[in-house]
Design a protein around this nucleic acid. Structure first.
Lengths: 128, 128
DNA sequence: AATAATCTACGAAATACTTCGTAATTTAAA
DNA sequence: TTTAAATTACGAAGTATTTCGTAGATTATT
């Protein structure tokens, strides 16, 4: 399994997002995607991705004229890790507090709220 | 109200945590607290807190030989802001996904799960 | 008042993160 | 095969963050 203490930076996260969504892609694709949100030079994206490959956040394969990059870390693992960080760093470790705040100030639909309720009941079942 | 787009850094967050928990405190107290977790020089903490005061994250009052610092931003606001950031940055904006992940991999007690369920039902009531 | 202890102000080094220019390389097109 | 287009490698500048040393000021002790 991948090293677990990786803390992607803000910029790295943007790139991971694209790759998680679009799957393995060349720099060009990632850069195009990032450019839709903000101005960013091609070589900036390239450099970031090269560094991420060195760090082990991405892997890459030669493909035609350039490379195709893939995420080396799971989206789930990253989510969990960053969640833990927020939980301990800002919510004093209370998942309850975090969950309530997340649901309170967000436009979560009734349907989704119901799903969550079911999910909780499932958890409760598993514990008893 | 306080500016809403403040992004405390990691180190700043540590300090805010202490002040939120202990209330207004001098540098010495904050530094002692931080030192329990990791090695950090007094002047490092001092400098950080001075910068935070400049930025408007903290306020301070002369008190005896030194100063007493207080948080200028609410814990709630900060929690919400960082939650939003995580939500959009890593969970694609889906509070549901985030909540499930938070509950899934954490040792939330049955009692707490129940509280959350009630909280959700309350939300549902408010929406209909 | 002299000495010691504590705190502040200031500057600057050390580190981490982001950005991009340029030159070299590779591939495709003319 | 020459030219053009795309990609890479590399270095380095720019910015933000974290760290701390030193000198000076303030307060408490002797």
């Amino acid at each position: 399994m991948q090293r677990n203490d990786m803390r992607p930076t803000e910029a790295e996260l943007e790139i991971l997002q694209v790759l998680w969504e679009k799957g393995p892609s060349p720099v060009r694709t990632v850069n195009d995607e990032l450019s839709r949100k903000r101005e960013i030079g091609y070589t900036t994206t390239l450099k970031l991705m090269q560094i991420m490959a060195e760090k082990g956040l991405l892997t890459r394969l030669k493909e035609g004229r350039g490379h195709v990059y893939s995420c080396a870390i799971q989206q789930n693992d990253t989510q969990q890790q960053m969640l833990d960080r927020l939980l301990n760093g800002v919510f004093g470790g209370s998942a309850t507090k975090l969950v309530m705040q997340a649901l309170g100030n967000s436009k979560t639909s009734e349907k989704e709220l119901n799903e969550i309720k079911k999910y909780i009941e499932n958890l409760e079942g598993g514990k008893s």
